[in-house]
Amino acid sequence: MTYAAKNLTTGGRELIAFRVGDQEFCVNIMSVREIRGWTPATPMPHAPPYVLGVINLRGAVLPIIDFSARLGMKPAEPTVRHVIIVAQVNTRVVGLLVDAVSDILTVADSDIQPTPEIASDFERSFARGVLAIQGRMICLVELDSVFPNEEREAA
């Protein structure tokens, strides 16, 4: 487990927290490549609704995912205040459209509580756990399940 390995060396893990609507989420900082402002994306034909299109990231074609729509919430109406979290998921690089980046957290594994028992499998599939930070609830997101890799797609 890479998380465990990281804990051994740093004594904790660093997460990037971001806001989508009125909820807060966080992802492992190691998978985040950069954070940039919103630029209009070129829509893709026949794409699922949460794929906003592709943008030019220094010459690479980067698909942009509306994180809110991806989780089945209200689709975002991107403005210049929105940000794109450029994340590496397996071999691909994708952009995640979120409302704002709120924090960088350093937490120990013990701070992460297991995902509460909820009815929906969908929410459970991407949530790795929840964190209680200063009275806020932050959901730790597993990017692998948000963006399935090739093998899973074939299965």
Binding site: P40, P45, G53, V54, N56, A60, V61, P63
Partner: peptide, 23 residues
Amino acid sequence: EANYTHVPGIAAATILGDGRVAL
């Protein structure tokens, strides 16, 4: 395909002078 997937009807992408992606 590098970061996304094959899109039917689209062969590849390119980047135009205004920096935007065109299919």
